[in-house]
Simulated assay, not measured.
Amino acid sequence: MGNIGTLFVVATPIGNLGDISTRAIETLKKADMVLCEDTRVTKKLLSHFDIATETLSYHSHSGLAKVDKIIGLLQDGKLLALVTDAGTPGISDPGSALVSAVRKQLPSIRIEAVPGPSALTAALSISGLPSSDFLFLGFPPQKKGRKKFFDEVAEQERTVVLYESPHRFLKTLAELNGRLSEKRTVVVAREMTKLYENVVTGPIDGVVNYFNEHPDEVRGEFVISIGS
């Protein structure tokens, strides 16, 4: 076995393609292969920047055989770039499992971060909420453990950040509405960096009323930040 390869964890835009870094473009171009959540999404990004690098899918349903294939490529000295559909891989994203597997099986491998856009930090930066100590919980559970999850969110005495999809967004707001004090500020950031970006802030009942009155805005991806 020759020189071991490198795994680059590359952040890509969450909406506005102008947010990609020069280093990210250079890394995607020099990589032997791009590991991506959805090859269709990533190929559009690569095409926009005239990047011809081959892609290989890696997502939440990828099995051990796919992980073994990636490990084998790294053992063969390949340069692999890991991306997600939008934002930073590994943040509420299946990429974290791959990085963990690579570290366990190839402890001496070089894993480099190519930092950039993240919905988490972008939303928190414009929320106006305390951010020196915050709790990020990703997507709420869909069924099992859901009540306990929201009970624990309500008990937090620090800023809490959640992700939510449009299909469960109103249901999640309803869960929060039954638990949060009116003194706690809620900031909902929708479609960040995209054409229809919107931020709604206020007590939870006001936020619920807004989206009930504007059902056409219950679309896209949401970041919900909850003040202490």
Rank of each mutant, 00 (worst) to 15 (best):
Gly63His: 04
Glu54Asn: 11
Asp133Lys: 08
Arg110Leu: 12
Lys30Leu: 09
His61Phe: 15
Gly5His: 04
Asp32Trp: 00
Ser100Phe: 11
Glu37His: 09
Lys69Gly: 04
Asp85Ala: 02
Asp76Asn: 14
Arg110Tyr: 02
Phe8Val: 10
Pro117Trp: 03
Tyr58Ile: 04
Ala11Leu: 06
Lys30Thr: 10
Leu35Asp: 01
Leu135Glu: 07
Ser127Leu: 03
Leu56Arg: 11
Ser108Gln: 15
Gly145Glu: 15
Gly63Trp: 02
Thr84Ser: 15
Ser92His: 09
Thr6Ser: 12
Leu17Phe: 15
Asp68Phe: 05
Leu35Ala: 05
Leu7Gly: 07
Ile109Ala: 09
Gln75Asn: 07
Ile70Trp: 05
Gly128Asn: 03
Gln105Glu: 12
Arg40Phe: 00
Leu80Ile: 15
Leu80His: 12
Lys43Met: 11
Thr53Arg: 01
Ile91Phe: 05
His48Gln: 12
Gly72Lys: 05
Phe139Tyr: 14
Lys144Met: 13
Lys144Ile: 14
Gly77Gln: 04
Val67His: 04
Ser21Lys: 07
Phe134Val: 03
Asn3His: 13
Thr121Cys: 05
Tyr58Asp: 04
Ser96Phe: 15
Lys30Val: 04
Glu26Trp: 07
Ser92Trp: 13
Leu82Asp: 00
Gly15Lys: 10
Leu135Asp: 08
Ser62Lys: 13
Ala11Trp: 01
Leu98Tyr: 10
Arg40Met: 00
Thr22Lys: 12
Leu135Asn: 05
Asp133Pro: 06
Leu28Gly: 03
Ser132Met: 11
Lys66Arg: 15
Ala52Tyr: 08
Gly128Asp: 03
Thr12Lys: 07
Ser92Tyr: 10
Thr39Gln: 12
Thr22Cys: 06
Ser60Leu: 14
Leu79Lys: 12
Pro94Trp: 01
Glu112Ile: 11
